[in-house]
Amino acid sequence: MTDAPAIRRAGPDDIPACAAIVHGWVERTDWMPKRFSLDEIVAMFRDALATREIDVIGDPIAGYLSLDPQSARIVGFYTDQPGKGLGRTMLDHVKAGRDYLQLWTHEPNVEAHRFYTREGFQIVERDEEGDDGLPELRMEWRREAAADA
């Protein structure tokens, strides 16, 4: 991708677009429980905006990455255009200046695991019930581990 879309910090006006990306993914994913309405997801984003670093990509917004800076945990990371390089662009952006990141991913999300593994993440833990009642895997990225690969 030669002209990657710009990444910028999300603001309150970006919340509906980010929530719509998550809601759309949940609706399209047969194994994912449909626990929250679009309005509830919007409310969760509004709450998170004060404590997380949420970056968006594209105009219109085509993806977002939400990071808890205290724990270096990627809490949410979705694009509505998989395979176009947006996820990698966002992940490279959040890795810059950091030596460590972690995230939880649903075990059935095999495509996400392949992506994270290609990007230097390793599975370090499994939670049988996860936040959504589904098994989840915790993955970590460390700059020194990525440099050795």
Rank of each mutant, 00 (worst) to 15 (best):
Met1Asp: 13
Thr2Asp: 15
Ala4Gln: 14
Pro5Glu: 07
Ile7Lys: 05
Ile7Val: 08
Ile7Glu: 08
Arg8Val: 03
Arg8Asp: 04
Arg9Trp: 02
Arg9Pro: 04
Arg9Leu: 12
Ala10Val: 00
Ala10Cys: 01
Ala10Lys: 03
Pro12Met: 08
Asp13His: 00
Asp13Phe: 02
Asp13Tyr: 04
Asp13Ile: 04
Ile15Pro: 03
Ala17Gln: 03
Ala19Gly: 04
Ala20Tyr: 04
Ala20Lys: 06
Val22Thr: 10
Gly24Glu: 10
Glu27Thr: 08
Asp30Gly: 11
Trp31Val: 10
Trp31Ala: 10
Met32Ile: 09
Met32Gly: 03
Met32His: 15
Lys34Thr: 09
Lys34Leu: 11
Arg35Asp: 15
Arg35Val: 10
Phe36Met: 11
Phe36Arg: 11
Ser37Phe: 05
Leu38Tyr: 05
Leu38Arg: 08
Leu38His: 09
Asp39Glu: 15
Glu40Asp: 12
Glu40Val: 03
Ile41Lys: 00
Met44Val: 09
Phe45Gln: 05
Phe45Gly: 12
Arg46Ser: 13
Asp47Pro: 03
Thr51Lys: 12
Arg52Phe: 08
Arg52Trp: 04
Val56Arg: 01
Ile57Lys: 03
Ile57Asp: 08
Gly58Asn: 02
Pro60Arg: 01
Pro60His: 00
Pro60Glu: 01
Ile61Met: 02
Ala62Tyr: 02
Gly63Asn: 02
Gly63Ile: 00
Tyr64Asp: 02
Tyr64Val: 01
Tyr64Arg: 01
Leu67Arg: 04
Gln70Pro: 02
Gln70Arg: 15
Ser71His: 12
Arg73Pro: 00
Arg73Ala: 14
Gly76Ala: 08
Phe77Gly: 07
Tyr78Ile: 00
Thr79Tyr: 02
Asp80Ala: 13
Asp80Gln: 14
Gln81Thr: 14
Pro82Ser: 10
Gly83Thr: 06
Gly85Arg: 00
Gly85Asn: 01
Met90Arg: 00
Met90His: 04
Met90Gln: 06
Leu91Val: 07
Asp92Asn: 14
Asp92Ser: 13
Val94Thr: 09
Ala96Val: 07
Ala96Tyr: 07
Gly97Gln: 06
Gly97Tyr: 04
Asp99Val: 10
Asp99Cys: 09
Asp99Asn: 13
Tyr100Ala: 12
Tyr100Lys: 06
Gln102Thr: 14
Gln102Trp: 04
Gln102Leu: 06
Gln102Ala: 11
Leu103Ser: 06
Trp104Val: 01
Thr105Gly: 11
Thr105Ala: 14
His106Val: 10
His106Arg: 00
His106Trp: 05
Pro108Thr: 07
Asn109Arg: 09
Ala112Met: 06
His113Val: 09
Phe115Tyr: 08
Tyr116Arg: 02
Thr117Cys: 11
Arg118Met: 13
Arg118Phe: 11
Glu119His: 09
Glu119Leu: 05
Phe121Gly: 12
Gln122Tyr: 09
Ile123Cys: 13
Val124Ile: 13
Val124Gln: 02
Glu125His: 09
Glu125Cys: 05
Arg126Pro: 01
Arg126Leu: 05
Arg126Ile: 03
Asp127Val: 00
Glu128Leu: 04
Glu128Asn: 07
Glu128Ala: 15
Glu128Phe: 02
Glu129Leu: 09
Gly130Ser: 04
Gly130Asp: 05
Gly133Cys: 08
Leu134Gln: 11
Pro135Asp: 05
Pro135Ile: 00
Leu137Cys: 11
Leu137Asn: 11
Arg142His: 14
Glu144Ala: 15
Glu144Cys: 15
Ala147Asn: 11
Asp148Gly: 14
Ala149Met: 12
Ala149Phe: 10
